[in-house]
């Protein structure tokens, strides 16, 4: 009798350890496909890219194995590259600021409007998100030039007397960039607004504050974190994007993304392209870290 119990105990034990082991192993099996994708197609390429950025480039070959800081030195001394870095930062800064201002006003509008308008506006904001960047570029590409809709419209309205072209200007690049990033900003800010009690506005007005003062002292502090997140999001996005500024902007508007493509596909200089990409990634990471540290603990917001 006691023997039987002992055997049962033993088999129960082995069963239990097997179960335990399975429990330990199960999450890894479930995570395996995702980890393979991230490690093989993101991890390994990143290591390769960093290594590549120290390789030599000569004799019109893609790269020659070696070790040199030449490309990084070049990156920070050659005016071609330093200008591109400055242009990228400047463009990202201005475009993100504009995106946040427009996105904020848009989100505020949707939040304040009666609910029946809401779905319509959200559908509108989704449009740029669902349309390919290339289609957006092409849309503006037909709007700005001399024979484009803008020129024709202004001419027919009698506002101008000669055809005008805004194509290949920094303004065109800027309009395109804001268009691409606006929906992200809008949805981040709308989600913040939705967490605010609208009665706060009435309370502030009842206490005698003007709309401007209510905005400055009630709305801004409550949405500050959202503004930061939206800003960093569009900054990261605009830093990395290159198609829109290079297609709509002037030929001199060389962003880092454009130079990466140019060095990789045009000049076949892989080490230089890699060095640019490494610096771009470091820039993106720096922006993320700075934004994270600027968010106060109390209002930390998860994206």
């Amino acid at each position: 009798m006691t023997d039987a119990v002992r055997i049962d105990d033993a088999s129960y034990e082995t069963q239990r350890t097997a179960q335990e082991r399975r429990k330990l192993l199960a999450p890894w099996i479930l995570m395996l496909p995702a980890l393979v994708i991230v490690l093989v197609f993101f991890g390994i390429p990143t290591v390769y890219m960093v290594r590549m950025s120290f390789n030599l480039h000569m004799d019109q070959r893609l790269y020659v194995p070696g070790f040199t800081f030449e490309h990084y030195v070049n990156l920070f001394s050659n005016p071609l590259f330093t200008n591109a870095i400055l242009t990228t930062i400047k463009l990202a800064l201005v475009a993100s600021l504009a995106t946040v201002v427009i996105g904020y006003a848009f989100a505020l509008l949707v939040w304040l409007k009666p609910a029946r308008w809401r779905l319509l506006f959200i559908g509108l904001a989704l449009a740029p998100l669902l349309i390919s960047e290339i289609a957006i570029i092409f849309g503006w590409w037909m709007f700005f030039p001399k024979n484009g809709l803008l020129s024709y419209g202004l001419l027919s309205a009698g506002l101008i007397h000669e055809k005008i072209s805004l194509m290949y200007t920094e303004f065109a690049a800027f309009v395109g960039l804001v268009y691409v990033t606006l929906p992200y900003c809008f949805f981040i800010l709308l989600s913040i607004f939705d967490g605010i009690d609208k009665r706060l506005l009435e309370a502030s007005a009842d206490l005698g504050a003007s709309p401007l003062k209510t905005f400055r002292e009630v709305m801004l502090p409550l949405t500050w974190t959202g503004i930061l997140v939206a800003f960093s999001q569009s900054f990261i996005w605009t830093m990395g994007t290159y198609a829109t500024p290079s297609a709509l902007g002037p030929d001199t508007l060389w962003t880092m993304g454009f130079l990466i493509q140019e060095q990789m596909l045009g000049k076949h200089n892989w080490p230089m392209a890699s060095a640019l990409a490494v610096v771009l990634v470091i820039g993106v990471a720096a922006v993320m870290v700075v934004t994270r540290s600027m968010q106060s603990e109390r209002t930390s917001f998860h994206v």
Binding site: F42, M49, G257, S274, A277, L280
Partner: peptide, 9 residues
């Protein structure tokens, strides 16, 4: 990560 960096890598 920017698409251009992922593509390059």
């Amino acid at each position: 990560m920017p698409g251009v960096v992922l593509g390059l890598g």
